[in-house]
């Protein structure tokens, strides 16, 4: 991994839902070892953008490339293999599984056991199980959830569920991590914790694309910011540049800056 190398590119990406253009010809690049923030008012198209960058939605037009290879139209489950992991705006855990099993799911593509091997419970299967559970435990330790490993994921408090979702994404050892509103619903303390963790991830050379409403968090941790409004990219630059951009102030910061 080379920090600063371009990992992912969006070229003129557009998504229409019927008559509504949720994302309108947006282009940007994602570098390794960089935190990029995607901000904008509610309904600006941020989640839709993330969904296209992870194969959940097919762009109506435009192209997405990873390491200069065109990946537009690839199925969602193939994106992990490309080095892209993500979390969701509404937490999507496997609630009926234990905390550690959730992280083990993040290691899914790293394992080989198929239906035949598992049916016969071959020694290789047991070896792989031991390996993934040990590895999952390390990921849980990183987010401070090791002591809750055997609880059901649904029983975790909300903030810990969000961290677990990140741990699951990190288990796939991605090159790029996409977080959709990771701080939503977190306490101040939890948000600080999150900020440190995201920076730690960035410092390990991973590119992070983070969508959030918490402006302070975004301005604190991001290296670059892209601003969307009504599906269009209206600004891009460092947090400072974006904060002083007049069109951003009217479109987005204006509404919220008043009460801060």
């Amino acid at each position: 991994m080379t920090t600063g190398a371009v990992f992912l590119e969006a070229h003129d990406v557009t998504k229409r839902f019927g008559g509504l253009t949720a994302v309108d010809s947006v282009s940007f690049t994602m570098k390794l070892g960089t935190i990029k923030a995607l901000i904008g008012p509610n309904g600006a198209g941020k989640s839709t953008m993330l969904n296209m960058l992870s194969g959940v939605y097919l762009p109506t037009s435009g192209r997405i490339s990873v390491r200069t290879v065109d990946v537009t139209g690839q199925q969602a489950h193939k994106f992990v293999g490309l080095g892209i992991a993500r979390t969701f705006q509404t937490v999507q855990l496997f609630g009926n599984m234990t905390v550690i099993e959730n992280v083990v799911m993040g290691l899914h593509t790293k394992c080989k056991t198929g239906i035949i091997q598992s049916a016969l419970r071959l020694p290789s299967v047991l070896r792989e199980e031991r390996m993934v559970f040990a590895s999952a435990m390390e990921h849980l330790e990183r987010v401070g959830l090791a002591d809750r490993a055997s609880e059901l994921a649904v029983n975790l408090p909300y903030g810990q569920q969000r961290m677990l979702e990140i741990a699951r994404a990190m288990a796939s050892s991605p090159e790029m991590l996409m977080l959709d509103e990771p701080a939503a619903g977190l306490s101040m303390k939890e948000t600080e914790h999150l900020a440190l963790f995201v920076q730690e991830i960035r410092d390990s050379g991973i590119g992070v694309l983070v969508v959030d409403h918490d402006m302070r968090l975004i301005m604190d941790i991001s290296d670059e910011v892209v601003v969307l409004d009504h599906g269009k990219k209206i600004a891009e630059g460092t947090p400072r540049e974006v904060q002083t951009n007049p069109s951003v102030i009217t479109a987005y910061l204006g509404e919220e800056a008043g009460d801060e």
């Binding site: 992870s54 194969g55 489950h77 193939k78 609630g95 599984m97 799911m105 899914h108």
Partner: peptide, 23 residues
């Protein structure tokens, strides 16, 4: 096993299952 977990995962959230690479 891994296969059973993948199936249970699909049951709770198809979108999350796909996001971790479950075909």
């Amino acid at each position: 096993s891994r296969v059973g977990r993948a199936l249970r995962a699909v049951h709770t959230s198809e979108i999350a299952a796909a996001s971790v690479g479950v075909d």
